[in-house]
Design a protein around this nucleic acid. Structure first.
Length: 572
DNA sequence: CCCCCCCC
């Protein structure tokens, strides 16, 4: 097997416009704040250049020894730029065409180029700017070179102007977050730059931004996926850019709700979930005597876990909780209240029904899941012991919740247990009464509801069944009660006949129950949340037991989905 | 150079 290197490609500036094949000569790992980045020295057979920076999401290639010296790879996606008069090519995607063993050594005798340029300019992107700074070696101790990049990025959130006064002086400040296709970064403005830039910037607009200086970001105060921030200087320029094509609107790194309990308190993080419940906005007075408006939302995600998110001020008032929207929250603070909960900050971005795959997945999940899904409310889990962590991560108190739109639902479930004791009761024989009767001393049966004594009674069912519901990504067992018709269908015997067996043939009676164990049916059920003192319990009643006819079940499921979708999207 | 962000 042989492959041709793309001779001459190393010298081409517009390397990102095609997919050259290069041989890997060697790589240099660089460690920065715990992250390893690999710089590659690549050869086109004539020249080699060590300006190729492997995107960290490709580190596994190197670490799995797929990208070893002498292998040949094709660069499928790159972004070129030059910062500080030095060329850098970020490698975002590559395929290894030939392994080192297959090439059998270095191809040709390539001459090493330095990648330095006399002129520089062009457009940079957000992930590369920091990479550049580390590659030029202009770290602490030497003055940074004059920055010459321009980024085209969208403002996702803009802070208000804040003034400060402390031992280090006083001044005013605002910041804004921007995204482009490569990443995100926070941009800071102090004092004169506040006056100059604050009025020009609008959320969601795209700008060309140049001439700022990079500084290391304090991760304690941001959820942005960038180790750096840009501070604007008097030389900085910001111009509106009317071509926003390809510039995304928001970048989030969502933490599943179930994982919030593993995160450090006070972390700033991103969460997405369906707004299951929303309190009304309420006015409160803070400890500092400030009048505040707050509103608590309950978010739920595919894990079935929920978390409380508190919104403040305008965000609390403006939020429309009807129709249970998907809520993406970027940069909320994790607190330890009630186990774990979230609080929005001024810099928090809240997006309702965002046009992102995570939202579609949640939406699909929320309309198809059975309404009786049992949820542990993470926010109600009280920490045990010190430090706010749960003993062995086990929730000590959990409540069950019913999906707020609870109503009839159908699911396929398998019987795993049933109670034969007391599954039959002696019911009033009066028409459609069904009230339990008491035997009198004279052998007759009294119905308190009808106020009548009868010579006989009718056996009727009140059959508790534990059924396991299995859907794509979860399994729950639920105790449900089958009344007359449902129980007769399930057991395949009338209450009268079973009552007769109970009195005459215990073996045959027991067999009826053994026979239904591990059988699978469609259960059309009704669910209610009932409160017993301090405890909530789900009350599930089986309305109808149907054979598992997959075609019919799918139709029913589809009806369910459509019905829920109509509720959710308020379609006609 | 900010870093406050509330209430149960």
């Amino acid at each position: 097997m042989s492959v041709k290197l793309t001779q001459g490609a190393i010298e081409v500036k517009a390397i990102s416009s095609f997919s050259p094949a290069f041989q890997n000569i060697c790589e240099f790992p660089t460690a920065k704040e715990g992250h390893t980045r690999y710089r590659l020295n690549l050869s086109d057979g004539v020249h080699c250049l060590s300006c190729f920076l492997l995107a960290t999401h490709l580190n596994h290639l190197r670490e799995a020894e797929l990208l070893e010296p002498n292998c040949v790879c094709v660069l499928k996606k790159t972004v070129s730029s030059s910062l500080a008069s030095r060329r850098v090519v970020a490698v975002l995607d590559l395929d290894v065409l030939l392994t080192a063993a297959e090439t059998g050594g270095k191809i040709g005798n390539p001459a090493q180029l330095t990648g330095e340029r006399k002129t520089s300019g062009g457009r940079s992107s957000l992930t590369k700017a920091p990479g550049m700074a580390s590659l030029t070696g202009s770290g602490l101790g030497s003055p940074p070179p004059a920055p010459s990049w321009t980024i085209r990025a969208r403002v996702t959130v803009k802070s208000h102007i804040r003034t400060w006064s402390n031992s280090r002086g006083e001044g005013k400040f605002f910041s804004f977050d921007v995204v482009d296709q490569s990443g995100e970064i926070r941009i800071l403005a102090f004092n004169k730059q506040v006056d100059k830039f604050f009025p020009r910037l609008e959320q969601n607009q795209v700008y060309l931004i140049s001439n700022g200086s990079l500084k290391v970001a304090n991760k304690q105060f941001t959820s942005l996926n960038n180790d750096y921030e840009i501070a604007l200087s008097p030389m900085s320029r910001i111009a509106p850019c009317h071509d926003g094509r390809g510039v995304p609107s928001l970048r989030c790194l969502f933490v599943p709700i179930a994982q919030l309990e593993d995160k450090e308190p006070d972390t700033i993080l991103d969460v997405i979930g369906v707004c299951e419940e929303a309190e009304d906005a309420v006015h409160i007075t803070s400890k500092a005597g400030e009048q505040l408006t707050k509103r608590a939302l309950t978010l739920i995600d595919c894990s079935g876990k929920t978390v409380t998110l508190t919104l403040w001020g305008e965000q609390a008032q403006m939020f429309d909780a009807s129709r249970h929207p998907v809520v993406a929250i970027k940069g909320a603070r994790l607190s330890t209240f009630d186990g774990r909960s979230l609080s929005a900050l001024c810099s928090t971005t809240l997006t309702v029904d965002p046009d992102i795959p995570e939202a579609s997945a949640l939406r699909a999940w929320s309309v198809t899941r059975p309404p009786a899904l049992v949820c542990v409310i993470l926010s109600r889990v009280r920490p045990v012991g010190v430090g706010g962590f749960h003993a062995a991560g086990v929730p000590t108190l959990s409540l069950v919740r019913v999906w707020v739109q609870a109503e009839d639902f159908s699911c396929v479930a398998t019987v795993i247990a049933s109670y034969k004791e007391n599954c039959l009761y002696q019911a009033c024989p009066g028409e459609s009464c069904y009230k339990k009767v008491c035997q009198l001393d004279d052998g007759r049966y009294r119905c308190d509801k009808c106020g009548t004594d009868y010579p006989n009674f009718e056996y009727r069912f009140m059959l508790p069944v534990s059924a396991r519901v299995n859907l794509a990504d979860f399994g729950h067992s639920v105790w449900a009660t089958c009344f007359q018709e449902a129980a007769e269908t399930l057991l395949g015997i009338s209450a009268d006949q079973l009552g007769h067996l109970k009195e005459t043939d215990e073996k045959a009676f027991n067999k009826v129950f053994r026979k239904i164990q591990y059988t699978t049916h469609v259960f059309r059920s009704r669910v209610k949340l009932q409160r017993y003192d301090d405890e909530y319990r789900l009350k599930v009643t089986v309305m109808e037991v149907l054979p598992v006819d997959h075609q019919a079940y799918c139709r029913r499921l589809l009806d369910n989905i459509l019905r829920h979708a109509r509720n959710v999207f308020a379609l006609a």
